[in-house]
């Protein structure tokens, strides 16, 4: 991805994060996710119906990378089945960890395809994924 487009995408999601602070009800499952080494702290809310992700919202205080990464993740995961969501999450994690991954399914989140170059920010990008994994793992047990 071109550097300027990458930057624009991240800043766009940082300034207008999808579903941040959205009102949610009791049909959502909540998880808190934070980085031990820094101050990012996000609450993620997921609503699942018929094994499909119906909606995701989030709230909290975090840096530009974490916030944008969460916003993109939400945009891309809504509408996916839990199975598809896992595949997406795995691919994102592989990309950040510099392992082979499938470009075709990551959509806007490809904006983080060079985040591995900044070691101290990898965890920022991964933070929302840590949270969503936790919720999905829980749901899997419930189902």
């Amino acid at each position: 991805m071109d550097e300027n487009i990458r930057r624009e995408l991240i800043m766009e999601h940082y300034q207008n994060p999808r579903n941040k602070g959205k009102e949610i009800d009791e049909t959502y499952q909540k998880v808190n996710t934070n980085n031990a080494s820094c101050i990012d702290n996000l609450d993620i809310y997921v609503k699942v119906e018929d094994k499909k992700i119906k909606d995701i919202a989030f709230d909290g205080e975090a840096c530009a990378i974490s916030t944008a990464s969460c916003s993109m993740m939400i945009t891309n995961l809504i509408g996916k089945t839990i199975q598809e969501a896992y595949e997406y999450i795995e691919n994102f994690e592989r990309m950040v960890e510099e392992k082979p991954y499938d470009e075709n399914i990551l959509e806007s989140a490809l904006a983080f395809n060079e985040i591995y170059k900044q070691n101290n920010r990898k965890n920022c990008a991964l933070l929302p994924y840590k949270g969503i994994r936790q919720i999905l793992d829980q749901l899997k047990e419930d189902i």
Partner: peptide, 19 residues
């Protein structure tokens, strides 16, 4: 966000603390 400021300054080898 304070951490973004600290990351920015780090690019110029300025070490401050955020958090």
């Amino acid at each position: 966000f304070s951490q973004d400021v600290a990351y920015y300054l780090n690019k110029y080898n300025v070490c401050i603390r955020a958090g």
